[in-house]
């Protein structure tokens, strides 16, 4: 196998892994976003906080699955608390208002993380198995596959939950028309916090995967994660988990390719250029539904 092709395949697999992690973070974001159409600036800092918690649990020598689950649940709890204190009072206000209060919550979380774990980047245990397959000169790492499988399972699972459980259907009702949902007796104040909690939970899983994959965690990942998740969710189309998945993959793959074939500068910029281009030609995202404006 020639090296050129090998390099291409290697880049592809790396890109898909990065994309999978983006999509895991984005799925949680997309959930919350589709519910209230609110740019949730706290998402990134919330999942980074959760990842830090997971880091502490792992340091305490808790078994890995327990640590992940416990961190996820704790983050979900924090997410629900934030919903209760910061979002709910302004739920019906102008959309800018919850956006800014979310930003405030993000700053509080970031400060808390900084106080507890310090401002520096910390080495995160690389728990993903290090083995690899050799496919005729091209090495496919186990962790690449695991990450992709994880992301796929997450998206499929979430979509299933949304379509087949009472909770999921209630959520969809709220997405469709909040007032009507309330009149139908759907308990908004139970469903919405749950969605926030779930969003945080899945965000943390994405965050732990990311940190486990690259072996690092820092509080700067918060705002970065928010923007990536936002971008991926919008790119794919709002409120569609497959869309968020697709958006994350596109973002990851295009970034990795730009980094591998052009330059590291292009790596940072290309993802955003792709977003701009997609939104110019498909203003509602790749899988988004066109909103009909009634005159």
């Amino acid at each position: 196998m020639n090296t050129e092709l090998n390099y291409f395949l290697q880049t592809t697999s790396n890109g898909i892994s990065l994309g999978s992690m983006y999509s895991m973070i984005a799925v949680g974001y997309s959930m919350v976003y589709s519910l209230l159409y609110q740019v949730n600036f706290a998402h990134g800092d919330l999942y980074v906080f959760g990842t830090f918690i997971a880091f502490s649990f792992i340091s305490m020598a808790l078994p890995l699955p327990v640590a992940i689950l416990a961190a996820g649940l704790l983050t979900a709890l924090i997410g629900m608390t934030i919903e209760r204190t910061v979002y709910r009072p302004v739920r019906y206000a102008n959309r800018i208002v919850p956006m800014i209060s979310a930003l405030g919550a993000a700053l509080v979380l970031r400060t808390a993380a900084q106080i507890i774990w310090g401002p520096e980047a910390i080495a995160f245990p690389q728990f993903l198995p290090g083995g690899s397959f050799n496919l005729g000169g091209f090495t496919l790492f186990h962790k690449n596959i695991i990450v992709l499988l994880f992301a796929t399972a997450l998206v499929v699972g979430l979509t299933w939950i949304m379509n087949h459980t009472k909770f999921g259907r209630a959520t969809q009702c709220i997405v469709e028309n909040m007032e009507a949902a309330q009149l139908m007796g759907i308990p908004l104040n139970k469903i919405i916090p749950l969605v926030y909690g779930l969003g945080g939970f899945f965000g943390v899983i994405g965050g732990i995967m990311y940190s486990g994959y690259y072996g690092v965690i820092s509080i700067d990942m918060g705002i970065w994660g928010t923007v990536k998740a936002w971008a991926a969710a919008m790119l794919g189309g709002v409120g569609n988990f497959y869309g968020a998945f697709l958006g994350g993959l596109i973002l990851g793959v295009s970034e990795t390719f730009a980094g591998a074939y052009i330059s590291s500068a292009a790596k940072e910029a290309l993802g955003y250029i792709v977003i701009v281009l997609v939104l110019v030609f498909r203003p509602n995202g790749l899988l988004g539904k066109k909103k009909v404006v009634k005159v």
Partner: peptide, 17 residues
């Protein structure tokens, strides 16, 4: 000092509420 950013955040939340 280190609480500064967080206090700023709380002020923002208070404003929004």
């Amino acid at each position: 000092a280190v609480y500064r950013v967080g206090v700023g955040g709380i002020i923002m939340i208070a404003f929004m509420l």
